[in-house]
Design a protein around this nucleic acid. Sequence first.
RNA 1: GCCCGAGUGGCGGAAUGGCAGACGCAGUGGACUCAAAAUCCACCGGGGGCAACCCCGUGCGAGUUCGACUCUCGCCUCGGGCACCA
Length: 803
Amino acid sequence: MKHLHPASDQGYDPEAVEAKWQERWAAEHVNEPDLDTPTRPFYNLMMYPYPSAEGLHVGNMFAFTGSDVFGRFKRLQGYDVFEPIGFDAFGIHSENYAIKVGTHPAELIPRNIANFRRQLRRMGGMFDWRQELSTTDPAYYKWTQWIFLQLYKAGKAYKKLGAVNWCPECKTVLANEQVIEGYCERHPGVRVEQRNLEQWYFRITEYAEKLLRHLDDASKMDWSESTAAAQRNWMGRSEGADITFKLASGDGTMAVFTTRPDTLFGATFMVLAPEHPLVGQVTTTAERSAVEDYVRATAAKDIVSRRVGERDKTGVFTGGYAINPATGAEIPVWIADYVLMEYGTGAIMAVPAHDERDLEFAEKFDLPVVRVIDENERLIASGSFTGRPASAAIGDITHWLEEKDLGRGKVQYRLYDWCISRQRYWGPPIPVIYCEDCGAVPVPEADLPVLLPPLEDFRPDDSGTSPLARNEEWYFVSCPDCGERGHRETDVSDTFLDSAWYYLRYPSTEFDDRPLDPSRTKTWCPVATYIGGNEHAVLHLLYARFLAMALHDLGHLEFDEPFLKFRAHGLIVKDGAKMSKSRGNVVIPDEYVARWGADTFRMYLMSLGPFQEGGDFRDAGISGPRRFLDKVWDLVGRCVSEDAIGEINHTVMVKWHQTKHKVSQDIEDLKYNTAIAALMELLNVLREVQCHEQRVVEDMLVMLAPFAPHFAEECWERLGHERSIFSASWPSWDPSLLVQDQIEVVIQVNGRTRSKVQVPRDADEATVVAAALADEKAQRHLVGKSVQKRIYVPNRLVNLVVG
RNA sequence: GCCCGAGUGGCGGAAUGGCAGACGCAGUGGACUCAAAAUCCACCGGGGGCAACCCCGUGCGAGUUCGACUCUCGCCUCGGGCACCA
């Protein structure tokens, strides 16, 4: 390693500087806060990466750097910052990739992780590597299984039949994103089907109302509005009523959910989802074969194309009738795949006059359309409700139904329970044992973890169950309750479960007898600032919130919202599109870091655009930040080798304090690009007046440290400091120096800028207007006209309106 | 179709009711050099003018205002997300 003399006036050599400080930070434990007795704990969390074979790309680096800048800023403000890192390494993507390259994931993943670790160290993140975790580590997934058991025991985990995508060629279940326009991603000619399989679910819907309510509670969460909006959207709360329709045959009823009970008099037919349990009962003999054909055809469609694909209305008449409780009319019952079993009651009352979808269906099958609301939004043809405003009738009719016990006001959510089952190999086995006598029995906590067996061949096979079922030695176990022969659950859990609680594990990674240490958790959680991509706005962030609420209710957590502040970072765009593997426009940061240094690269990424909006990656601009660092390096050299000028002139003084104010504000707001620009402006002023006063340069280095940490450390040391710059404190400013004594006030005539005058700060209106009227350039635009109005904005402008 | 962003010089972007284009990249001219790189200095939205200056200009069209990149209404384009949710 190159030796660097502290006071060297040699040029800036990023490679040597960065290696030196990375080594020293590790040796001196600079990035490791006291986890047990911190003075001012601050949990700075970044969404952990998914270690793919390609390594981190520039988009990931942008996000990590932005989070690290914030953590370092808080550190300099005197907080004990905990900035952990880990790896989200289970899941179907890793598994498919492993199958593709023919290497076992257990071998592949550690290799990928090692590469990620190298990249993350190289960029100079302030990570506390003591607390590193990987979700694939049995020491981690033992507790993922433990969490499943807690939820299971509390009745928050259950098993039911669920519709899934099934590829007859792969003989396995596919995630929605693996179904491309109805065909299997891996088998372009093979249509994906829908199958009903037993799956494990978590009861997230129990928390729908609370999940929604907290989004508007500033004391619980301060989140990017776009993220909160996405969650509201996903939960899809709607108010309406459940209404009961009697079947005309006299035996039984069918329930529907509607948001428009006011249109009840216009319901001219009913539609059931093809899977609806009542279908068999309402279907008449004459229609049975047609109905059965339709039900079969629907089942053969995959879920995705049913929801997204062809939107032409299809359906068949069941032959059965229901009675409209408002009109007493017998109306036909149809089945159609535009009604979804998962939403509401899986059945609707169709009001074609006031619902586009129902209208389309009615027109196609020649069903009656009855208008019940006029152009003034008042009810018509609605019995005693005729004439009522539709908005009021919603409540009126609901009330009337409640009185007659035919319906009930209801809040319906779009949110459905979280399916955590995966019929795959690469995940934590769900800790359940099936016994012929005892049924599903949870694995005793003392027996955790249920280790994922090292299967040689982990490919999904013809059986349609997880490959784990093939390993007899693992599969057959004795029942924990009765000791008779039983077998293990072969589903593994969703990766979203791994990531729903990882933030809780970081402070407690060294404990192997408990998932989280109560004292550590109390000290550090909930997370102070969480930064991540908005692609996880719904699933990951919602599941993590749900799990915190569930664990809170079960007495494991004192809080019920995991992330106090969440900010979504922007996307790095390349060639007009988001940087992603599938678009083939990813840029790997390594060569840039090697050529320019991590500090220059960090600064470049942070100056591309506002952090929360992202930016456009073009490598052309990277020389700018490097030139800036070279100039600062040179300035520090002057501090060391030349006598400082004794007095800081007024221009420098004002710029210095303005910069401290602006950079502090901008970093707090994640406006890193303008913070960097402000530092550049300060440098330009210092160079212009040839000032190299050490007090100013030191403040500048502290402000630069979040962006260019190694560089700032080295310069700090060159200035004679022995302790890390991160032990220094963030500079404060003198508010009285933020404004100049002499202010340049703009003179406008009819709103157009014509001149400027220098006046003392806070001069009174009369003085400034007099100066404006006396101004030669302004006068040119005033000749022959009279001033009709004078607008004065203190310390900014005078506008003379003339006519 | 619905929801969320964004449209400003050659390029990335700054300014959130008050001097449009901060800062940076690229470019042009000059200094240094045998030369080049690096560095330093100057210029750098468009049009007119010898110049002082003047006019035009923030996706498009209206509006509010003394004054609009910024606010309001109606469009267009791009990016991201969701999608037959009754």
